[in-house]
Amino acid sequence: MRIGELAARAGTTTRTLRYYESRGLLPARRAVNGYREYGEEDLRLLRQIRTLQDFGFGLEETRPFVDCLRAGHPAGDACPASLAVYRRKLAELDELIGQLTDVRQQVARQLASAELAAEAEAPGGPEPRCELTG
C-alpha cells in the first residue's frame, strides 16, 4: 500500500509517517517508481506506536516495542527491552499518582479550612442552601 492509504488506515497523516520514517521507526521501502510501499506489518507497527502514545509513552519509548515486532514477535511487548520500558513507565506513573494524591490532600485541607473560616465570618451562621443549586 502507498503512504496515503497507510495513513488513512492508521488514522494519522502522511506527514506523521514521514516523521516516523525519519526517526527510524517506520521502514523506508521504495518501489521502482520511487513511491513508498508499506505492508500490513507496517500498519501493525503504527498501531503499536499509536496505542503506546495514547497511554502517554513518548515516541522514543515506543522504539523497543517496534524493534520487538520487527524481530518477529507477535506482540511488541514480549521482549526484555519492552518490559523494561513498561516497568519504567509504571514507576513514573506511580510517582505522579503519589504527587497528585499529596496535592489533592493539600487542596482538601485548604478547602476545609476555607469553609470553616467562611462559616465563622458569616453573620448569623452559615447561609441557607438553595435546594435548586445544591
Rank of each mutant, 00 (worst) to 15 (best):
76 G>K: 03
1 M>V: 10
2 R>I: 07
23 R>D: 03
1 M>S: 12
5 E>Y: 02
13 T>L: 00
50 R>C: 04
19 Y>Q: 08
43 L>V: 04
25 L>V: 09
130 C>D: 15
9 R>D: 03
76 G>Q: 02
6 L>R: 02
93 L>E: 06
100 L>D: 06
94 D>I: 11
101 T>S: 10
8 A>F: 01
37 E>R: 10
25 L>R: 02
56 G>Y: 09
45 L>S: 08
16 T>Y: 05
61 E>A: 10
66 V>P: 02
117 A>M: 13
102 D>H: 07
67 D>F: 03
123 P>K: 01
130 C>P: 06
9 R>K: 12
51 T>A: 14
113 S>M: 11
54 D>R: 10
15 R>L: 07
77 D>W: 08
82 S>W: 05
93 L>H: 04
119 E>L: 11
69 L>Y: 11
80 P>W: 09
23 R>F: 01
36 R>I: 07
99 Q>N: 13
17 L>I: 06
68 C>F: 00
21 E>P: 01
108 A>D: 14
90 L>F: 14
83 L>Q: 13
7 A>F: 03
40 E>Y: 03
37 E>T: 12
81 A>Y: 01
96 L>E: 15
119 E>Q: 11
18 R>E: 04
3 I>D: 06
39 G>E: 10
111 L>K: 13
91 A>C: 07
29 R>F: 02
119 E>P: 00
23 R>I: 07
2 R>T: 05
131 E>F: 13
39 G>T: 09
58 G>K: 11
62 T>E: 06
99 Q>K: 14
10 A>M: 08
65 F>M: 05
124 G>N: 03
24 G>Y: 03
112 A>G: 05
125 G>P: 12
80 P>I: 12
115 E>H: 04
82 S>Y: 01
53 Q>I: 07
60 E>G: 05
